[in-house]
Nucleic acid binder design. Structure first.
Lengths: 199, 199
DNA sequence: GCTGTTCTGGACTTGCGGGTCCAATTTTGG
DNA sequence: CCAAAATTGGACCCGCAAGTCCAGAACAGC
């Protein structure tokens, strides 16, 4: 039923990818509310029929694919630092990486828009975000556990809870940055989170 | 030019309020993307002409008014606790108040939607959110300074930066809750923030 | 090469929702 | 009570953007 499970030629797959990436770029630049299928069509040099050929259920299905694509990017952009939180300098390197990423990305947060638009209606979108948060928190928690293993972090600390708090700080920092343009909150949250682990 | 500055009879003011509150409720229930002027019209028992009479610039102006209304509520819902952070029990009481508020509110975060929709386009919406964050952080920072004054918090701590981090944690906790339905992150962020101050 | 499937182009339909308009009614101030 | 201004009702317009359709081109496998 879904095109993913059907036969797609190499060319078809490429077109599908082009559509997703083009839509993602368009949304990042102009916002989800302002992005129409015609915009995507123009940018990706495709036709209406192609959009509905690859996403038969229409715009929502495309948006969901974009959400998945962007969710992947959020984590992969933090690699390899996020997967290697094995020393204090490594933690700081990760911290800097996160700050740098959102600094350069500026006001674009493709996911927040997708959440707002699809979050409550589409169950799929909520699942994508939940899974992203789960993985993200999992990687942070793994880092904490590793540091506990080598005696750099107190073993009494609840790794999952600390990771949850740190993750919340990051999310909120990004949110505040989106609204106000200031990166201060993100930095403060990260620094305080790390400080909290260090003791 | 704007109706606020023009003569409005008592009846007119009441209608205007009814529209704003009805629109806010509608958005909270169904989401900003799904709310149309006709929905607002039906709920508030008004006519199209009234909507444009009180908000001549159309939907954006109404949405902005709703944003202001909701921003006010965010802070006032935390009172009196937020304005009285003068002892550790008071801090905990505030923490509980925040958790309770968002727990009962559930998945509705009217502001996040407004940010996503108007944030980048309308300068006014960004200003509303910026101002909300500024005030919120200011009240937290004032609490920290008071605790420093009575020797309960280390005077070496940067009150503004700590408040920024705590605020970010709250925002992120709410965001995660909206996406996943779990309150854990909000609680973890608050607890860790307070713990951080206590030392 | 032949055949069926996949892919593509673009014209067309359709419904929705923001916004306009004007006439009728109520309220205000004097 | 009377004008002027504020308020209200609702029919109407209109553009936009999602979604449909079909015919033709490119492609895969044999």
């Amino acid at each position: 039923m879904s095109p993913e499970s059907r036969t797609l030629t190499r060319k078809g797959l490429a077109t599908r990818r082009r559509i997703i990436e083009g839509a993602a770029a368009e949304i990042r630049e102009r916002g989800i509310a302002e992005t129409t299928l015609d915009d995507v069509r123009a940018r990706t040099r495709t036709s209406k029929s192609q959009l509905f050929h690859y996403f038969p259920e229409g715009k929502d299905e495309l948006l969901l694919a974009v959400a998945r694509y962007e969710a992947d990017r959020v984590l992969s952009d933090q690699q390899p630092q996020l997967g290697d939180l094995t020393s204090w300098p490594a933690w700081v390197a990760w911290r800097d990486r996160v700050v740098e990423r959102y600094l350069s990305q500026g006001m674009d947060c493709p996911l927040s828009g997708v959440i707002a638009q699809l979050g409550r209606t589409t169950p799929g979108a909520a699942a994508v975000v939940s899974e992203l948060m789960r993985q993200w928190q999992g990687e942070i928690a793994a880092g904490i556990r590793h540091m506990q293993g080598i005696g750099e972090i107190d073993s009494g600390l609840d790794a999952d809870r600390s990771a949850a708090a740190l993750l919340a700080g990051i999310q909120g920092g990004v949110l505040v940055m989106l609204a106000t343009g200031q990166i201060d909150h993100l930095e403060a949250a990260l620094d305080m989170g790390l400080e909290n682990l260090r003791r």
